[in-house]
């Protein structure tokens, strides 16, 4: 094997520090705010780059995103962190994708690019669907390891440690496979200035959904988006006994 061909899908989402606000028509949130790379996708890119730095044979790291024109910024960020090149499928308004659509699209990309490892965030922090990785593995018929907290690759054997309720689980699988990343996998680097400059010269291919000829029509319809109910004021209790009786009163104990 001449080295891994890693595909890292990244998504442009509302920056995690921004408090989203529901729009007036209650059809979604106001998107005229700062966006950045989905934090879990930063972990994916970082892990791909670290695999290469740990001398795991890596032939190529490809960053991929489907989204509006501005998604190209996120791909550039991924390339500044260490991805070799990028593909941007530009989606116009009304072409929003659901997890299944993304998974189908990624399957096409995997086939076209001959990828043998896909590392993706376990979920995006905007829709929180946490489905794309699993659906992709299903469509491809590949092994999957979700919520990875450690990844080791030797030859075509992959060991993934994942945090589960009550402990950690170690999985072993053969390439090709799909891995989704969780918070404690690594600590993503900052893009250094020379790498930001180099990233501008790395190839970024532009495509459209039509190029893939897929049925990505939405299966779901957003009925309404509302703010969570405002938090009610609390009560002060005098002592521990007071707290316990209050908790009992509320049925929490």
């Amino acid at each position: 094997m001449s080295g891994l061909r890693i595909l890292v899908p990244v998504k442009r989402v509302i920056d995690y520090a921004v408090k989203p606000r529901v729009n007036r028509t209650q059809t979604g949130v106001d998107t005229n705010v700062k966006h950045s790379m989905n934090p879990f996708d930063e972990l994916s890119i970082e892990e791909a780059v670290r695999l290469r730095e740990r001398k795991t044979p890596v032939q190529e790291i490809l960053a991929f995103s489907a989204g509006p024109a501005k998604s190209a910024d996120i791909i550039r960020t991924a390339m500044a962190m260490g991805a070799d090149r990028g593909i941007h499928v530009q989606c116009n308004e009304g072409e929003e994708l659901e997890p299944l659509g993304v998974a189908k699209l990624l399957k096409k990309v995997v086939e076209g690019e001959k990828s043998d490892l896909v590392i993706l965030g376990k979920q995006s922090i905007d829709d929180d669907a946490a489905q794309t990785g699993q659906m992709l593995a299903g469509l491809l018929g590949w092994s999957q390891a979700t919520q990875a907290s450690k990844v080791q690759i030797e030859g075509d054997s992959v060991t993934v440690v994942r945090e589960v309720d009550g402990g950690v689980e170690t999985l072993k699988a053969k390439l090709p496979m799909v891995i989704t990343t969780d918070l404690r996998l690594n600590e993503p680097r900052y893009a250094s200035l020379p790498n930001i400059m180099k990233a501008k010269k790395k190839p970024l291919e532009k495509k459209t959904l039509k190029d893939y000829g897929l049925d990505t029509a939405p299966r779901l319809k957003t009925v309404k988006v509302t703010e969570p109910p405002a938090r009610k004021g609390g009560v002060k209790v005098d002592d521990v006994d007071g707290m316990i009786s209050k908790l009992k009163e509320l049925g929490a104990l």
């Binding site: 995690y16 520090a17 950045s36 930063e42 993503p188 900052y190």
Partner: peptide
């Protein structure tokens, strides 16, 4: 602080 995720201020 440890490295956090990307940050931005709420008020630009």
């Amino acid at each position: 602080a440890q490295r956090g995720f990307a940050v931005s201020s709420r008020r630009r």
